[in-house]
Design a protein around this nucleic acid. Structure first.
Lengths: 151, 151
DNA sequence: TACCAACGTTGGCGCAGCCAACGAAAGCGA
DNA sequence: TCGCTTTCGTTGGCTGCGCCAACGTTGGTA
């Protein structure tokens, strides 16, 4: 971000900004990795959630991934168009759609896991294993603290 | 983000996602604080940079803050409209505009510093002072590592 | 039988972070 | 001095993420 000139002290002193910079970096790396197979972060989140829960409604998936219901519609559309996911009405509750991973979806997910693993490693490259654990711990504590708390 | 249901393990295991979640939280808190006085993050970054460098060109400010030149135009426009910043052509280099903080801008900046200080504290609330230093150190190392490196 | 809650869907919004292109101006090498 | 390249401000545009409001449909509940 800063070819040559120095970032103002005041900005460097902001943990929020630091976190944001790190997130930008991380997202850039991850997005580039996923883009190799034409996938965005929402796609992966959905596939990962689905693989873990088994077939579920869109609302449930949204709750688990943090994806808004309206965005969920588009994401499921995308994945269904690619045959990675299947959407059928729930006969037992006709408000719901049941979304499930196809076998192609599962294959894709496995590939994404690999790509993401490498991306994580690239992101955390300068840190030792212990440092990484510490960072994860600290960030987890922060986000957990704010989760239920509506800030 | 997660009222009730659990976040999938695979997602929880992603440091990049964790960082992003933390950044979302931090940005939410910061944005809300700044919004109290109708300011966005770009505005603060610009004012902070300007206060530190003294009157400079927009390009220079962009380099220091990481704000794109095109966005810089709009940001300077905003701040100039509010009388927080002044933009005059540089007589010694007629390609440049020299941007400088007004006294009203300096007053605003002082207020923003206060608001932001409180926001940082709210963001890092669950962490001890030592933890905060550690987090800042780790994030700094990660972002520094990736800065010059074009990922 | 009302009323309320949940669901999927549509449409929209704002901000951040980008990129491409342009004319004007400055710098620089031959 | 003349081209070439670089820098600067500006315009216009784009994508993705994270949101919110509203609506009709359906289920659960008083």
């Amino acid at each position: 971000m800063n070819p040559g000139e120095a970032t103002p002290r005041r900005l460097r002193a902001l943990p929020s900004r630091l976190t944001n910079q790190a997130a930008l970096t991380a997202n850039r790396i991850v997005d580039k990795a996923l883009a190799q197979v034409g996938v965005r972060r929402y796609h992966y989140s959905l596939l990962a959630a689905l693989d873990e829960t088994g077939p579920t409604s869109q609302a449930e998936l949204g709750r688990r991934t943090g994806i808004d219901r309206s965005d969920m519609v588009a994401t499921v559309n995308d994945l269904a168009d690619r045959g990675l996911v299947q959407r059928v009405p729930d006969p037992e509750d006709r408000r719901r759609n049941i979304v499930s991973v196809t076998s192609a979806g599962r294959r894709q997910l496995a590939q994404l896991d690999e790509l993401l693993g490498a991306a994580q490693d690239a992101y955390l490259a300068p840190l030792s294993a212990a440092d990484r654990r510490t960072l994860i711990d600290l960030l987890t504590r922060v986000t957990d603290y704010h989760r239920d708390k509506q800030d």
